[in-house]
Amino acid sequence: MIKNCQITKAQQDVNNIVYRGRIIWRDISTWISTYLMVKTLQGDTELLEKIKEKLLRIVEDFGGLMRTFFGDKAAADYINLFSEYIMHITSLIDALVEGNSNAADEIVKQIYESAGKRIELLTEINPYWDKNTLENYIYTFTDMTIKEIIAFTSKQYESSINIYERILSYSTGLGDFLAQGIKNYLMYNLEPPTNVGSPPTVE
């Protein structure tokens, strides 16, 4: 009876992480776009802060689920790196809206550095996240996000909308890849990693 309850609880945890893994990147892209619009339209400062808080709560939420499977230190490191990435993204929006191109160029470098650190962490804690595949996913997502920000702040609204739609579609594959990596980790528990799939090509 106890064993059956433990199995059921573990399966519920897996299902929860899979669900969150599938939607986290859609949530992130949606709230980044919301921040972009509010900032560009010179919205209320308090609203901008609330949106940033929402983005960081999403990171905390997913980090909390990771803690269940990879431990406190891995979760804390992930939350710190992902939060840093999010804050760099919002800083890039601020810089472009304010016309500070020099600051924007430097922030873009910081965004990619932060993304790289997160990739290193994730592939260290879970061998079922293939590094090359994860790099392709994360860097492509980052590329598109930066392009969306530049297009919107340059008033290329149609282009920005098209990029955003591509991001939403792409984020599903990214979320599925992360979720599958966790499932494989739990199922095989450090047996030789299997091929967990390649990211789609973005035109």
Rank of each mutant, 00 (worst) to 15 (best):
K117A: 12
N195S: 11
L92Y: 05
D72M: 09
M66S: 13
G71V: 09
E203V: 15
N136V: 04
S154L: 05
I79D: 03
N184D: 15
C5L: 13
P199A: 09
F70E: 06
T123I: 05
A151S: 13
I28D: 02
L36M: 08
F152M: 07
T142Y: 01
S101N: 11
A75F: 00
K147G: 04
L36Q: 04
V202N: 06
G116H: 06
N4R: 15
Y164I: 07
I79W: 01
D176G: 06
T40K: 13
L36H: 05
M87V: 12
T140Q: 04
N162D: 08
P192W: 01
Y137E: 03
I161N: 08
A10N: 08
E165D: 11
S171M: 01
D44W: 00
V59P: 01
S160L: 02
W31M: 07
K54E: 10
I149G: 04
W25S: 14
E124G: 01
T123N: 10
N15W: 01
D61P: 01
K183Y: 06
L178V: 12
Q110C: 07
Q156S: 13
V108R: 11
I111Q: 01
N162A: 13
I125L: 12
G63S: 09
N189C: 08
I23L: 02
Y188L: 14
Y188A: 10
V38N: 07
E49H: 11
K147C: 04
R26V: 12
T45C: 13
N195C: 10
S33F: 05
L41C: 07
Q180H: 10
L186S: 08
E158V: 15
M37C: 04
E165S: 12
A75H: 02
E135H: 13
L92D: 02
Q6T: 14
K147R: 15
S83Y: 01
I146R: 04
P193W: 03
Y19R: 14
T140D: 03
I150S: 11
T8G: 04
E203Q: 12
V38R: 06
R20F: 03
I107L: 00
A104S: 13
N100G: 07
I32F: 00
L36E: 00
E124F: 00
A74R: 03
K54H: 11
A10M: 08
C5R: 15
P192G: 09
A179R: 04
L48Q: 09
K39N: 11
S154E: 14
P127M: 11
D61H: 07
W25I: 10
T140P: 00
L134T: 07
E158T: 15
D61W: 00
I23S: 12
S160H: 04
S154Q: 12
A10S: 10
I150F: 02
Q12K: 14
F82N: 12
D176E: 14
L186D: 06
T34G: 06
T40A: 15
N184E: 14
S114V: 06
G116Q: 08
I150H: 09
G21E: 02
V14Q: 12
G197L: 02
Q11T: 14
F62T: 08
E191I: 06
L121Y: 03
M37D: 06
L168G: 07
T194K: 09
Y185E: 12
K147D: 12
Y78D: 11
M87T: 12
I146M: 03
